[in-house]
Design a protein around this nucleic acid. Structure first.
Lengths: 156, 156
DNA sequence: TTTATCATGTAGCCGAGGCTACGTTTTATC
DNA sequence: GATAAAACGTAGCCTCGGCTACATGATAAA
C-alpha cells in the first residue's frame, strides 16, 4: 500500500488529483452560495414590497439582523449591492444579473424535481441546497427532461 | 408595505417562517457535509489500501494535512472515528453506518444524473455537491426514475 | 546506525457566518 | 413634540475550515 492515492479498482472512481479538484470546486461554489441567496432574496423583496430591509432579510433567512448586516457589507464590498446606514438595500447591475441567473436556475430545479413527483414543498426546500451545485451540463439535462415531459405528460 | 415578510403574491413561494426554516435546514445539512465526505473517504481508503492516513485524506481532499488533522479531531469528538497520534484512522460503528449511507446516496445521485445524459465526470462532480441536499422524498423519486429507465431504456 | 525524508502534531493567523449585548437612529404613536 | 418601539449599527465572542511555520515522531536509505 505504497500509494493509496493511485488505487483504482473501480472504474467509475476518480483519481486523487481530480477528486481533489472536484472537492475544491464544491468548496468554491459554496463561497458564492450566500451571495446568490442574498441577491435573489433582495430582488424578491424589492419586487414584492418595494424595498429590501435588513430586518426582512434576517426574518426570511432565519438569522439575526447582525449576521445580515455584516453579509451586506461583504456584498457591497464585492459590488453586488449598495446601501447606506439606516436605509434599504439596492442591487447593483451585477447584483441584478446574478439574482436573475439564480432565480432562473432555482425555478428550473424546482420544476424538475416536481416533474419527478417530488412534493412541491420538498422540491422547494431541496432546490435551495441543490441549485448551487448544478453545473451547466446538468442544468441542460434538467431542462431537456422537462421539455420531454411536457410533450408526453404522465407516462406512468 | 407594512409587513413584507407576509407578502405572498406568487402561490408557489414560501412564507417568511417556512422559508427561514428551509434555509436553516440547508445550513444544518452543511454541518454534516464534511463529516459525510470524510467518513466516506476514510471507508474508501480502508477498503482500497487497508488503512486511512491523514496525508491520504489531505491529498484526496485537496487540503493540507493540518486541516485534515483538525477535522479528524472533531469527528473523533463526535464519535465517528477513532485515532491515536501518528497512527491511522478508524471508523466507529456510527462512522461506518454514516459512510455506508453516504456512499449509497452518492451512488444513486451519480447514477441518476448519468441516466439523464449528464457525462460521467460531470455527474461525479455535481453529485459531490448535490448529494448532501437530497431529501428522502427526492432520493426516492430518483430511484423510482432509475427503475423506470431500466425497464424502458433509451426512450430518446 | 546515523541520517534524511516523510507523516503528524501544534501554534497561530485569516475569513465566513453564526450569536449576544448594548448603543444609536428612524419611525410610529400618543 | 415627546416618547415608545422598531430598525440598524458596533463590539466582541464562537465554530468551522482554510492556511503557513515550525517541532516532533516514524521510517527508509546510506
Amino acid at each position: 500500500m505504497k500509494n493509496p492515492a493511485q488505487a483504482t479498482e473501480k472504474p467509475r472512481k476518480l483519481g486523487a488529483t481530480s477528486a481533489a479538484a472536484v472537492r475544491r470546486r464544491t468548496r468554491e461554489e459554496h463561497a458564492q452560495e450566500t451571495a446568490q441567496d442574498y441577491v435573489e432574496l433582495i430582488a424578491d423583496l424589492i419586487a414584492a414590497t418595494g424595498e429590501a430591509r435588513v430586518i426582512d432579510l434576517a426574518r426570511r433567512l432565519g438569522v439575526t439582523h447582525v449576521t445580515v448586516a455584516r453579509t451586506i457589507q461583504r456584498l457591497q464590498r464585492d459590488g453586488l449591492v449598495t446601501s447606506l446606514p439606516y436605509r434599504s438595500i439596492f442591487l447593483t447591475a451585477s447584483g441584478r444579473k446574478l439574482s436573475e441567473e439564480s432565480r432562473t436556475r432555482h425555478e428550473i430545479v424546482v420544476e424538475f424535481l416536481e416533474s419527478l413527483g417530488v412534493p412541491a414543498l420538498v422540491a422547494q426546500s431541496d432546490a435551495e441546497g441543490i441549485e448551487h451545485h448544478v453545473s451547466r451540463e446538468t442544468l441542460r439535462a434538467f431542462t431537456e427532461h422537462l421539455r420531454k415531459e411536457k410533450k408526453r405528460p404522465k407516462r406512468k
